[in-house]
Design a binder for these strands. Structure first.
Lengths: 124, 124
DNA sequence: TCAAGTGTACTACGAAGATTAATACACTCG
DNA sequence: CGAGTGTATTAATCTTCGTAGTACACTTGA
């Protein structure tokens, strides 16, 4: 299910984190599903248990998982991670806006910018 | 004029870069002023010449300085660095806006956010 | 109760990157 | 030409980061 790409320069825990997050976002792993244990997944991927632990820990911080000591890790409700992601995006957007204001951009400048973005069809 | 703080965890070249940038932004160093030579400033600060060179190099990249081989480094015109800083702010603002759009924020949500920012008195 | 399975905390090692230093080169100008 | 300037290259040192090893704490079922 998960394949580690050793040509990828990013650390393993980050690759695992991203791929699991994708599976959750796409709904392949539905809420309250029990994740494989850190040790089991570590064996499957041939990595250290702490590496998986770190990935799980990140996913928990981002609201994708919740963990119960002695029982395991489970997929969170959709709203949990959706709200989390939205909050962070709002925070960074606000900061970017403040910076723009401080460097002299006017209210109209910024309004024009966001209008452009929202009129584009494709975004990435 | 410049004091290096060794309790500061940031690298020396970054401290020097920031403090010189502040002096330029505040107008203490006006356009076309000749900066101290890399070797001279290195002696004054008791650091290696390359460290100063790196700071100058960064300042040049950000449009604060221009250098002439064999002659020295000089403070740029105000518009040079102002435009540069503005460009970067616009780029990050646009990206933040795209992310917000992708995570489901509506056009009105974003408009409301920037309105708030521009109605605030103090910003940092 | 205990043993197996679970998450977690702590420490340490190794590699990779960042920072600084040493040195040599190229240019300007008197 | 020589002193002063910026710049390129290389090397040494330092710091950070990713990963691994190990021990601890909890849950559950036999």
């Amino acid at each position: 299910m998960i394949i580690i790409d050793y040509r990828d320069k990013r650390p393993i825990y980050e690759q695992v984190t991203d791929k699991l997050a994708q599976l959750i976002i796409k709904g392949v792993l539905s809420p309250n599903t029990k994740m494989p244990s850190v040790r089991q997944l570590a064996i499957d991927l041939s990595v250290n248990a702490n590496t998986v632990q770190r990935a799980y820990s990140q996913l928990e911080q981002n609201g994708y998982l919740y963990s119960v000591v002695g029982k395991g890790n489970f997929v969170s409700e959709v709203n949990d991670w959706k709200n989390q992601a939205t909050k962070e995006n709002i925070a960074t957007l606000r900061q970017a806006c403040i910076n723009a204001k401080n460097c002299g951009l006017t209210y109209d400048d910024v309004k024009k910018l966001i209008k452009e973005v929202y009129e584009e069809k494709q975004t990435s």
